[in-house]
Amino acid sequence: MTIDESRLDSIIDEYNAEQGSLISILQDVQAEYKYLPKVALEYVAKQLDIPRVQVFGVATFFKAFSLKPKGRQQIHVCMGTACHVRGSKKVLEEFERKLGIEAGGTTKDGEYTLETVNCVGACALGPVVVNNEEYHGQMTPIKVESLLKKA
């Protein structure tokens, strides 16, 4: 794929090309492309003068980053402790069954990416599912189907 180097430059410039801002820069790159394309990572490595292997290490270390394109719809099932004790695992399993993918996967048509998150801080509503930044509280397995239909 080709990337818009001037767009990457403006992201990098925003952080004065500081090596310490690598994670913030990668967050912005990911926001731009919805994932981290290899060419973009190589470009960032070059511009920040960081070894490629270190950039690759950072990109695979942090959970926020993905080297694979994500689905148009992102479903995040909160697996925080409060949600766990209220049965978030059953909700996740129902999503896995309904979408035919495992957590972390993307449906073949590129529509959905199913992911777990460790706590979204909305513990009062647990179990919580966040779909494209919209919160759905008190989730149960039976509510999964209607959520997917609405989405």
């Binding site: 310490g20 801002s21 990668l26 960081i50 270390f61 942090f62």
Partner: peptide, 26 residues
């Protein structure tokens, strides 16, 4: 302001500092 990348281990001070240096949070 620096943003974390989603790693519980970065609550550990030296891991957080590594991540502030643009390295994996080890």
């Amino acid at each position: 302001v620096n943003r974390g990348g989603g790693a519980f281990v970065c609550g550990e001070s030296t891991a957080l500092m590594a991540s502030l240096e643009g390295k994996p949070g080890e």
